[in-house]
Amino acid sequence: MDPHDSGRIARSLETLHAFGYFAPEVQEELTRIGLEKGRMCYFASRSAPMGAVSPGTVAATFFVFNPALVAHRMDGAWTLASPEEVTAARYRGVSAAWGRLLGDLDPDDLAEAAELARTAARACSVAGRPLCAGHADLPWPDAPHLVLFHALSLLREHRGDGHVAALLEEGLSGLEALVTHTATGRGFTVAAAQATRGWSEEEWGATVADLAERGVLTPDGGLTEEGHSLRRRIEEATDRMAGQPWQALGQEGATRLAELGRPWVRQAVAGGAFPKGVFA
């Protein structure tokens, strides 16, 4: 497969993984076992497959979050619930959320999508990819909807780990990566990026000024020609490094998975998969 095509398909399905962090049912299950609502649930549930890792490890692998925010929100998390309890609660919540948002799917279509995604996910290389490796060590669920969720989680973390490598290759810090991504106009607004990733206006402004001196940004925070070239290189490298599982699935299988999944993405979003205020 062309890496750009596989990257486009991967991004089109990402919602079916991402609501596993934010749906109310997931938050309910995680707070029921003792975690604090909001960011602790996100940080702990996503990192739990790696074990009881330190806040520094979480910040390193999540990359674009302010390490101080991660340290504050992860403080004591593993004393409230073990990583195994957190992962089990996450999957219970995902199952409940799936039933609410996507419980009316054709079971044959769901089973087909689950096996297509599993075929791709099993081809993920975990070398140098800690978040993907942690998820790969988890046992496969039995229910088709959870097989699909687990497979898409593996594919997402495989791609994300590679994306961090591409950012590092270009010499960007986590905050610089976030600032330049926001400057493309295809991601967060500046205010949303600062609020959700824990960066102050002063930290953001200093980074904009530094990137402007390096010729990546204009003084008002827009991308220069070099900045646009930088982001293109990053996305192309990310697509290349994420291509292995999609090559294993093949063009026909990947296209079919996208055809099945895209209407489900729209249905999940319309049904409230991402409620406001989850990071309160």
Rank of each mutant, 00 (worst) to 15 (best):
D220H: 15
D220C: 13
T61H: 12
V269T: 03
D210P: 01
V58H: 09
E259R: 08
E225D: 13
A206T: 02
P245T: 00
R231Q: 11
P245G: 01
D161L: 06
A120D: 04
I33A: 09
P139G: 03
P3C: 10
V64E: 06
G160Q: 10
K276Y: 12
H17E: 09
F149N: 03
V265C: 12
F22I: 04
D137S: 13
G51C: 07
R11G: 07
W140V: 00
H145M: 00
D104Y: 08
H163T: 06
A52T: 07
H228I: 06
T189R: 12
W264C: 11
S95D: 15
L105W: 10
R159Y: 09
G171F: 15
G128W: 09
P24W: 14
A44N: 10
T196H: 12
T119M: 08
A195Y: 14
P24E: 15
H72T: 12
P245A: 04
S54N: 13
L154I: 03
I9E: 02
D220E: 15
A166G: 11
I33M: 09
S200M: 00
A52S: 12
R186I: 09
T61N: 13
V64N: 10
A133L: 06
H150Y: 10
A121V: 02
R256E: 15
G227H: 05
P55I: 11
K37M: 10
A88Q: 02
G250Q: 05
E203Q: 08
P141R: 01
R186N: 09
A206S: 02
H150L: 12
E85T: 03
V94M: 03
A151F: 04
L168D: 06
G253F: 07
A10H: 15
A71Y: 05
G171Q: 12
V179C: 04
F65K: 06
I9R: 13
I9Y: 09
S200H: 02
F63R: 05
L217G: 01
L178G: 08
L69I: 07
L16S: 02
D109N: 08
G185E: 10
R73A: 12
D108S: 11
G76W: 11
K276Q: 15
V126P: 05
E157A: 08
F22S: 06
R233T: 08
L110E: 06
V265A: 14
R266H: 15
E226D: 15
P130Y: 00
L230P: 12
D109Q: 11
D210H: 04
C124D: 06
R118W: 08
G99W: 02
F63C: 02
P219W: 07
E28C: 00
Y91R: 08
H4A: 15
S47W: 05
Q251R: 14
A193Y: 06
